[in-house]
Simulated assay, not measured.
Amino acid sequence: MLSTEFLLTSLVVVLIPGTGVLYTISTGLFLGLRASLFAAIGCTFGIFPSMLASILGLSVILHTSALAFQVVKFAGVAYLLYLAWGMWKHTSGLALTQGGQGRSMFDLAFKGFLINILNPKLTLFFLAFLPQFVPETTTTPMTHMLVLGLVFMGMTLGVFVLYGLLANGFRRHVLGSPRVAKYMQRSFAATFALLGAKLALAER
């Protein structure tokens, strides 16, 4: 059921840096390993609604309805800009070193969840991606797509956890210098803003 082509293609897709990767890395750098794990889990679970919508055919609505697509798209844009602004506001070294204390892990996971669920391109991606690896001879295409989607989610979680581990490894170097920490956080904030602008200009 799982072809080598599917596994390799999925790995390449997952490794490509996007908003989820950026969020997980920034969380690992500034809030630590545990926080990055929750961020990775949130981003991964944010894939599930898009995957399920694709399997059930609901993503056709986004593809055919300009209004539905625009509503979801600009909700995603607003959220990315919100994250960028929040990160830009807190650029002191003290805020970074103490930011993980009292920070709800559920809140971090939920933010990661929203990043993916508010990206209409993700739903359309699954609609185009998964059917390519469903054998024509199968009698249960929906089940086959569900298995493929769950494997994709598992690979996403594994890669994102790895990104979080690597980010946490560099954490002491970043937090050891308030200037570097401030520069890094503002760089992440600017990148989130650019990703929001890119999504705003995206077409179906």
Rank of each mutant, 00 (worst) to 15 (best):
N116V: 12
D107I: 15
G100K: 10
N119G: 03
F125T: 00
M105K: 09
L96D: 15
G93Q: 10
N119M: 01
P131V: 04
F125R: 05
K121D: 09
F125G: 01
M105I: 14
D107V: 15
N119T: 02
F110V: 11
T97R: 15
L118M: 06
R103I: 04
Q132A: 11
G99W: 07
L122A: 11
L114R: 03
T97I: 12
L122F: 03
L130R: 02
T123E: 07
L118T: 06
G100N: 12
A109Q: 05
A95W: 12
L124S: 00
I115A: 03
V134L: 07
A109D: 07
L124G: 02
T123S: 14
F110L: 14
G99T: 05
T97N: 11
P131Y: 04
K111C: 08
G102Y: 00
L96E: 14
G102D: 02
L124D: 00
F110I: 12
F113Y: 13
L124N: 01
L108E: 07
Q101P: 03
L108D: 04
G99E: 07
G112S: 08
Q98M: 08
F113C: 07
T123M: 10
T91Q: 11
I117M: 11
G99F: 06
N119F: 00
G100C: 02
Q101S: 11
G93I: 09
A128W: 10
Q132F: 09
F133C: 02
L127R: 11
P131T: 01
L122T: 13
M105H: 12
T97C: 10
P131W: 02
F126L: 06
D107N: 12
F106A: 10
L130K: 02
S104T: 05
A95E: 15
S104K: 06
G102W: 03
G100Y: 13
I117A: 08
S104E: 05
T97E: 13
F133L: 03
K111P: 05
M105W: 13
L118S: 00
N116T: 12
P131N: 06
K111G: 06
G112R: 06
T123A: 13
S92R: 10
N116A: 10
D107T: 14
F113E: 04
F106W: 13
S104G: 02
D107A: 15
L130F: 04
I115G: 05
G112W: 13
G112D: 09
L114W: 09
L124C: 01
Q132M: 10
L108G: 03
L122G: 08
F113P: 03
L96F: 11
P120K: 06
G102N: 01
F125V: 00
I115W: 09
Q132R: 14
M105D: 10
I117K: 02
F125P: 04
V134G: 06
F106V: 13
F129E: 07
S104W: 08
N119L: 05
D107H: 12
L130E: 04
L127S: 13
L94V: 14
N119R: 01
Q101M: 10
T97Q: 14
R103F: 14
L122V: 14
L127G: 01
F125S: 04
P131A: 04
S104Y: 04
S104V: 04
N116H: 14
F126Q: 06
